[in-house]
Amino acid sequence: MDRGDSERVTARYQEYLEAFVVRARRVEEHSLAAGWDALVELAEIQIQVTRLDNGGMRIRHEYPAEEVVESAAARLRPILLEGDACFYQKVLKALGYFCRALPQDSEWIRAARDEWRTRVQPTTGEEAGYWVMVSNSATGEDHSLDRHRLAMAWIYGDVVHHDAARRQEADPFGLVDRFRAAVPLIAWAMVGTIELLNFIRVLQEAGHIQLSQRVFDERVALKSTTWEENATVYFAPVGTEPPTAAKTPLTAQWAQLDSAVDLSVFRTQSGAQLLRTGDEAAEPPEAGSGTSCSKPQAG
């Protein structure tokens, strides 16, 4: 490999790692990851069996709310997709390249690759952990599907896509079977993602890789969705051209909104345009200050 090829490979692999760090940090911020022990436990197939007084048995599954797992699946999705830069196996390949002279780290990478394949991309029903068989007494049809395919049907048929083929294959088993098959997969993928993120942090601190510090520091998830900030507000008749940039001087049609202005004008049927400029002394929670225009609804 000549120098040009080496530089291109290095740049591509660094791109994979930086994309993964940003996405993995967002996964790390998810509420399911707030309790590490609980997340690890959730990654295992949990079935509680109780013996009844009449000699029968009762099976109980207890999982987080579906919408909580659904949001986790959405955050994980790019890490599960082979076509995305932050795909887990691409990141391991990149790390293998940078750690090729580090035997101990290379061994960790190989082990992580094998475990991910077994847990997230199993090739047999046995590797998947279990399978479900159902029989329709009305039609006489029998169906059988392993846990991994049921889980994929929930992720890509019920949640992040509407994959018709996956839904059709898994429909005979119902939403409950699809969901409870997906929970351990999602939880384990989160565990594997966060462990790999921490491994990358160690390599970065040791100087074995040189990623942009920005990907470790930038905001990746919102802690709060309520903000208050000081601002100067301007308004103009509907149809007035807004400024083309944050620092563009305002035309004479824009007037400052202050205590002398009757706010009821913004509730009339005619509507209005508003322009807010950020207060330099009190930067908004999001990075940077700027200008925003809006058209309040009439009524």
Rank of each mutant, 00 (worst) to 15 (best):
M133Q: 12
V27W: 05
T251D: 07
A151Q: 03
T268C: 04
R113C: 06
T240G: 00
A151C: 04
D84K: 14
V49W: 03
Y156F: 14
L203R: 06
L222R: 05
E195C: 05
A72C: 07
P64G: 04
I109C: 06
E127F: 02
E67A: 00
A72S: 01
R276E: 07
Y130G: 04
E228P: 01
A181S: 15
A221T: 08
E66H: 09
D279G: 10
S137W: 13
M190C: 15
E70W: 07
D37K: 08
I45H: 02
E29L: 00
L197H: 11
G140T: 12
T10N: 06
E280Y: 09
G207D: 12
N54C: 11
P78A: 09
G288E: 14
G4H: 10
A170Q: 04
E44Y: 09
E229K: 07
R201F: 03
Y13A: 05
R219L: 09
K295A: 15
S292C: 11
W36I: 01
G271S: 06
A255F: 11
P242I: 01
E62M: 10
E229W: 07
H208E: 14
I155P: 03
G140C: 03
P103L: 00
K247P: 00
T248P: 00
G299V: 10
V220H: 05
Q104K: 12
V160T: 13
T291D: 03
R23T: 12
Y234K: 05
Q104I: 08
P249T: 01
L52G: 08
L32N: 01
D105Q: 09
S289G: 15
M133F: 06
V21P: 02
F179D: 08
V215C: 08
W108C: 04
Y130L: 03
A128L: 03
R75P: 00
A170T: 08
S6V: 12
E229I: 09
T277I: 15
L211C: 10
V220E: 03
A298C: 11
E107S: 13
R23P: 00
A151I: 01
E15R: 08
L257T: 03
V265K: 04
P296Y: 08
E126K: 08
Q89V: 12
A298F: 13
V21W: 03
T124L: 10
G271N: 08
A128N: 07
P78K: 09
G4L: 13
E28S: 11
R26M: 14
D279C: 15
Q48A: 09
Q168W: 09
P284L: 04
A246K: 09
L274V: 02
T268R: 14
V68F: 01
P296K: 09
A24M: 07
P296V: 06
D146Y: 12
A101F: 08
T139W: 05
L274E: 12
